[in-house]
Design a protein around this nucleic acid. Structure first.
Lengths: 285, 285
DNA sequence: TCCAAAATGGAATTTTAATTCCAAAAGTGG
DNA sequence: CCACTTTTGGAATTAAAATTCCATTTTGGA
């Protein structure tokens, strides 16, 4: 009760004007910075130069960084229209990881509205695909990718393992490698013939699997590890069971629409990997 | 004595090893995730999927996000070798500013360094994929898409035809239809067994092919047309030979990097089509 | 040079979050 | 089926950080 009434009052007072986007914040900062008192200006300059620190620092840390007192930081925040530092920090924190969260809400909306038109659904997949691609650039470690290419370029024969949802990825890899004359075996599971024993110590396996992980993929990976073959894993998270096999991990976090994913990111990663390997192999030949 | 020796042990245990880089952390996570108790594993998965949240969230927020108790978060942190959450968060915060530069800046940097590294190639595919997706929305006629969905929802059995470069598309369709209990046959060409004669008048064929067009796809489409089955074509241009068969055409113009394409647009279109068909079929049931 | 207003530093207080602790529940091996 | 260990949830405690307050200093105008 007490809290509620207090909050109402505070909200009213601050409804005044608190920037609600980072851009609005910096616009305001640009306008008012000139006629701020010395210490506040000093702090404003620091923020302008180190905007990324706001989200992950305490008042004391920022104060020390800008060489001002913590109370000066508080005054600055209030000067900028916030009720305090916490509110300002909330803004900086939310702007950082906003890409992801609001997709899950959008997804719910889609579920509520049912299936709508096919075009709307297509738009959804396109949108999610674009976000996934963008994210791909952030999550794939250039070093790991380079390492994967090296390993695959050195290997004798490549083995492509991935079933169900991952099969489009491996089958496309098979196509690409064939076009580039790279010896690659697509483990298809046809006729329940186990191709494990084809894997030789000098070979390498590209294992593709996403949660829920396909057991057969894990089995083949294990066999490969025992044989001594290298493993490159295209999977979704580091806690993937493929981690056990000392694989070189390439992580793809693909957003989904309902129960399905567009696979855009996974395929892009796969084809980039394939082309790089093909190029490196044909160079050394 | 007793106390002294105990303290020594404790000190030894805690100086143990706390990961001092993000990479080390995730390496350790990958190793130990397997044999973590249920709730801790649950939280580990959440962290693996949302690593960027750790730097800017409180224990309570993360706990809520992973749907575990705050104390479980603490236990997890200790299990990973930290003294507590604060220490772990410090690690994530220290590497925060390095991730701050977003996708577009990262891409520019890669561009400058030339097209040598695999990462640069990946960036190329990502960029091209995004453009293709954008283009897709423009080239696909909502009316044609709706028409295709109607036809496929009415059909008895669906036949998925597409080879070589188009095979990832048809195999993903097969996966999607299976998951939605829609009867669909993937024409795989295995063992050179011709599955033409499976196509009945009330069936429909989804034919996928891009230049240079695969003859077998055209042959099956022709057979289907003779039988009286409907044809939905996913292809690249209106002059595609599939046009001859009075097919409903869905056009995808996929940009390429060198001789290869990322297939992002084709797969997005395919999955949107599949989900729409599945929804419409299960609605009428 | 003096006064009033504004600004500042730092300690005191309040709020919030991290951490510990313990009883209850869920497994496990005999 | 029982004793014993591990795991879990949630409350209690402790630590840390945000925020306020006020005495002191600085600034600018008469």
């Amino acid at each position: 009760m007490n809290d509620a009434s207090q909050e109402t009052v505070e909200a009213h007072v601050s409804s005044d004007n608190a920037p609600d986007t980072i851009d609005a914040f910096f616009a305001r900062l640009g306008n008012t910075a000139e006629d701020l008192p010395k210490r506040l200006k000093q702090f404003a300059d620091f923020i302008a130069a180190n905007p990324d620190r706001v989200a992950v620092s305490t008042v004391a840390e920022l104060a020390q960084g800008a060489d001002v007192q913590p109370s000066a930081v508080m005054r600055f925040c209030q000067e900028m229209g916030f009720t305090g530092f916490s509110q300002m920090q909330r803004l900086f924190r939310s702007s950082f990881s906003q890409k992801w969260p609001d997709y899950s809400t959008r997804l719910e909306k889609l579920r509520e509205h049912g299936t709508e038109s096919p075009s709307a659904l297509l738009a959804e997949f396109v949108e999610v695909g674009r976000a996934s691609l963008e994210n791909l650039m952030a999550t794939v470690e250039p070093r790991a990718l380079q390492q994967a290419v090296d390993v695959l370029a050195r290997a004798e024969t490549l083995h492509l393992v991935g079933f169900r949802r991952a099969f489009p990825v491996t089958s496309y890899l098979a196509y690409a490698f064939e076009k580039m004359d790279v010896p690659a075996v697509l483990h298809s599971g046809i006729a329940n013939i186990n191709m494990d024993h084809l894997i030789k110590p000098n070979d390498a396996v590209i294992a593709v699997t996403f949660a829920p992980y396909t057991q057969m993929t894990l089995d083949i990976a294990e066999k490969a590890r025992e044989t001594g073959a290298d493993i490159v894993a295209i999977t979704d998270v580091v806690t993937s069971p493929l981690a056990r096999f000392k694989a070189i991990q390439l992580l793809v976090s693909e957003l989904d629409v309902g129960a399905f994913r567009a696979l855009s990111a996974s395929l892009s990663l796969a084809i980039a990997l394939a082309v790089s390997v093909g190029a490196q192999r044909n160079k050394t030949n």
